[in-house]
């Protein structure tokens, strides 16, 4: 039995070896991947390419931050891509019609948040898994985007460029900086705020959270709200960088975001995880994608690689839920009561 503490001694911090952190493995994988790619194609380490990677992962990073909080609260949203599509189309049309940027930003954030709240509240009110309701709303969002654009490409070349194309000192993309800011914000919420604690609590054991006086409805809805705001933010950066929108804009991003979160050590079952892991998960996605480009892999095949990667990350998450210290965890959990 562990030593009993003297009354004047505070509980000491646990000693967790570095290698027991998920992010450590990801960092290792990233270094290895970079070295291999760099030795095949030295242009990988060129400043312009690194800037490129940072730019590419900005959007994913913002989405993954929101998704981390949502998954920790025990929910999920797979309509993120469709939501981005709808929001980008709407704001692209506004920009085309020279609506002031103030309204564009406001509409982007509010519309994305509203959509996300629809997914969340329908799941909470009807007590259906958010996986299902978001699957339903995926079609609603995409259908709406088709309806309002009539399927026409919305180009905004030359306008609304600042967010996506600005590079501070010529190297640091503004979007990436915003991404970093959001990582910090998410980390702060999860680690230092009551709301973050409640996210973990409702994700870990909703019944216990309820009896501790935590409102499950409110907490989960807030997670959806934050996720929605992130989606709005990401939509703007994406549109600004690409300069055009269509209903399929952003499709598939939800899977990459979920993949990054899960491989970053946040299990889909909720109640666990952190932002640091997500950061490295996103970075890994970015490096893989860049590597495939550098090695001139056929774009269709790139899709396949990402699909496999996401399945693999889910498998890892499922495995680590069972295997630990060479022990069959499920069996232990059953007997843990004793």
């Amino acid at each position: 039995m562990p030593e009993r503490k003297n009354s004047n001694q505070v509980l000491q911090k646990g000693k967790k070896p570095l290698y027991k952190n998920q992010w450590f493995f990801l960092l290792l994988a990233e270094v290895v991947l970079a070295v291999i790619t760099g030795s095949i194609n030295p242009r990988f380490f060129a400043l312009s390419n690194i800037t490129n990677i940072l730019e590419q992962i900005a959007v994913l990073g913002i989405l993954a931050s929101g998704m981390t909080m949502l998954i920790i609260s025990g929910e999920i949203d797979i309509s993120v891509g469709a939501n981005i599509g709808l929001v980008s189309c709407v704001i692209a049309m506004m920009i085309k019609n020279d609506v002031s940027y103030f309204w564009v930003v406001l509409v982007a954030l509010i519309l994305a948040a509203f959509n996300s709240l629809l997914v969340g509240s329908s799941s909470l009110v009807f007590k259906a898994p958010s996986f299902i309701t978001s699957l339903g709303f995926l079609s609603v969002f995409r259908g709406t985007a088709y309806a309002i654009t009539k399927g026409v490409f919305q180009t905004i070349y030359g306008k609304f460029e600042a967010l996506g194309l600005t590079r501070l000192w010529g190297i640091l993309p503004l979007g990436f900086l915003i991404g970093i800011l959001i990582y910090f914000l998410a980390h702060f919420i999860l680690k230092y705020s009551k709301l973050g604690r409640h996210f973990y609590a409702v994700g870990s054991n909703p019944a216990a959270a309820y009896l501790s006086g935590i409102s499950i409805f409110r907490t989960k809805l807030l997670a959806f709200l934050i996720n929605g705001l992130m989606i709005g933010m990401a939509s703007m950066i994406l549109l600004s960088r690409v300069g055009a929108a269509q209903p399929t804009t952003g499709s598939g991003l939800e899977l990459r975001a979920i993949g990054a979160v899960v491989i970053g050590g946040t299990p889909l079952s909720g109640g666990k995880g952190n932002i640091l892991g997500t950061f490295f998960g996103v970075l890994l996605m970015g490096i893989i994608s860049n590597t495939l480009n550098m090695l001139r892999v056929n774009p269709y095949f790139q899709e396949v690689v990402f699909g496999i990667f996401i399945v693999a990350s889910l498998a890892v998450s499922a495995f680590s839920a069972y295997a630990g210290k060479g022990v069959f965890k499920k069996a232990i959990r059953q007997s843990k009561e004793g």
């Binding site: 973990y200 609590a201 870990s204 054991n205 019944a207 216990a208 959270a209 009896l211 109640g271 666990k272 843990k336 009561e337």
Partner: peptide, 9 residues
């Protein structure tokens, strides 16, 4: 187990 503990925390 059911109504008390926050597992993983």
């Amino acid at each position: 187990k059911k109504y008390g503990m926050f597992l993983g925390r």
